[in-house]
């Protein structure tokens, strides 16, 4: 129980780092760490398939995309970042305190709605659910990947001469 809470605290800390880090590259890596920690949380909940996907896709693929965006825009954006540092600090320093206050505040609130944990009834296997009951969502996934391909073709194009 205590370990799980520590894990969740780490998750929030990693997310906080991702939003506060002054260098973009470091923020990106912190985001990857957040994803990895979330994957561990998902695994602990027993959502193994989702955990694997979170680890490979979010912590892996999205990090690659973000790192490439950061490095492709590097020289100019570094200058911008240096100029921006003061203002960033002014906008971001309250965030940790707000989070701590919110966390403490929320832990003192009495739960307004009663949620009873239901027994894990015969819910079945995730593969069966996905393939037999949620076919429509699978179809949606295929479509959105297709849209993504067109997105790459349209948006990652060199300027017409």
């Amino acid at each position: 129980m205590i370990w799980f809470t520590v894990l969740l605290v780490l998750l929030v800390l990693a997310a906080l780092w991702a939003s506060m880090a002054s260098a973009l590259l470091r923020a990106t890596l912190a985001l990857a760490l957040t994803s990895a920690l979330l994957a561990v949380v998902l695994f602990a909940f027993g959502a193994t398939l989702a955990a694997v996907l979170e680890l490979s896709v979010c912590a892996g693929l999205i990090t690659v995309v973000l790192v490439s965006v950061t490095s492709l825009t590097q020289p100019r954006s570094l200058k911008e970042q240096a100029a921006d540092r003061k203002r960033r600090l002014r906008r971001f320093w309250p965030l940790p305190f707000v989070l701590i206050a919110a966390g403490v505040g929320l832990s003192f609130v009495k739960v307004p709605v009663d949620i009873v944990m239901r027994l894990p009834a015969g819910d079945g296997d995730v593969r069966t659910v996905l393939w037999s009951l949620r076919q429509l969502d699978l179809f949606g996934q295929i479509l959105i990947l297709l849209a993504g391909v067109f997105g790459v073709l349209v948006l990652f194009r060199k300027e017409a001469k």
Binding site: G140, I144, A147, F150
Partner: peptide, 12 residues
């Protein structure tokens, strides 16, 4: 899911 499919196609 379908709202999102429509939206992504429209972003592009």
């Amino acid at each position: 899911v379908f709202v999102e499919v429509t939206a992504v196609a429209t972003f592009i």
